[in-house]
């Protein structure tokens, strides 16, 4: 067999596999888009139609005004901004301390931190709620945000990054007259920008798609977030699929923009930790 032919075969096989995998990801999304434009009852036809017979563009404004989505977006936005700021800052401080300072019990504390990564978030749901309730934070922004300000994963990722920075640079700053805080603030932190961006991006996405915690900790309609709002199209006896999908497509836009604007940090995050 000639080598170029072998190469072509390999390329064909590669592309086929890639297309198959991409389809697995893409088809549900396309279906969601298609459903968002269907008539309320078209959804339930059998066999289900692939495309709407008559695209219902009005589904979008109708869905977004039937419930106070402007308020939902604001709530989700507040949650996202707080989580991004909180998680990058605590991640940087915690990660730097674990990477650079020697203190009693460092190994044990770090192991406990990693252990926390293994605990499913759902197990913590009830204790978190009880805690926030005891503090009088249920159905408030403070209650929604406060337990989300630290991310174990962020601390871990930034620790790994700080470990990869050469110590000599910090030693040079130390000899140059820098205090430990100056070294962190003016040397280590600027150098950690790619890792900080990765943490920020992941926090943003986490905040935007979080559902269970906002569902539990908020009660009044005006405290709901976008995700919870979308879910409320789904009643006990009735579900308006097209409206739900139209709202979901709209909610995707910020995430999509954030992702497209910072794709390289996603890759960087995976390189750094091998996670996700």
């Amino acid at each position: 067999m000639r080598p170029d032919r072998a190469g072509r075969r390999r390329a064909v096989a590669g592309y086929t596999a890639a297309i198959l995998l991409a389809s697995v990801m893409l088809i549900p999304f396309l279906w969601m888009l298609s459903t968002a434009l269907m008539d309320e009852f078209e959804v339930f036809q059998y066999p289900p139609p692939l495309l709407p017979a008559d695209p219902q563009w009005a589904n979008f404004p109708n869905a977004l005004t039937q419930l106070p989505f402007a308020r939902f977006f604001l709530n989700s936005g507040i949650l996202a901004v707080c989580m991004v700021l909180g998680q990058t800052l605590t991640g940087a401080l915690g990660g730097y301390a674990f990477a650079r300072f020697r203190f009693a019990g460092r190994g044990a504390v770090f192991a406990a931190y990693l252990g926390a990564l293994m605990v499913p978030a759902i197990v913590l749901l009830i204790p978190r709620f009880l805690l926030i309730d005891a503090l009088g934070g249920v159905d408030t922004i403070a209650g929604l945000v406060s337990t989300e300000l630290v991310s174990v994963w962020g601390v871990f990722l930034l620790r790994q990054f700080f470990l990869s920075l050469p110590r000599e640079t910090e030693d040079a700053a130390r000899v140059d007259g820098a205090s430990e805080w100056t070294i962190f603030w003016r040397i280590a932190l600027p150098l950690a920008r790619p890792a900080l961006a990765t943490v920020a991006l992941f926090s943003f996405i986490d905040a935007w798609k979080s559902f269970l915690w906002p569902l539990v900790v908020t009660q009044s309609l005006e405290m709901r977030t976008v995700e919870v709002g979308i879910a409320s199209f789904h009643g006990l006896y009735y579900a308006n699929w097209p409206y739900q999908m139209a709202a979901a497509v709209t909610a995707l836009i910020p995430v999509l923009v954030a992702f497209l604007a910072s794709q390289r940090f996603f890759t960087r995050g995976i390189q750094l930790t091998g996670i996700r």
Binding site: P166, E168, T169, D171, A172, R174, I187, L191
Partner: peptide, 20 residues
């Protein structure tokens, strides 16, 4: 004394310049 109070300056093997 910590390094900053010693009035010494050091040249490192890998130069240790501040990359940013």
């Amino acid at each position: 004394l910590p390094p900053r109070e010693r009035d010494v300056a050091m040249v490192f093997q890998d130069y240790a310049l501040y990359p940013h």
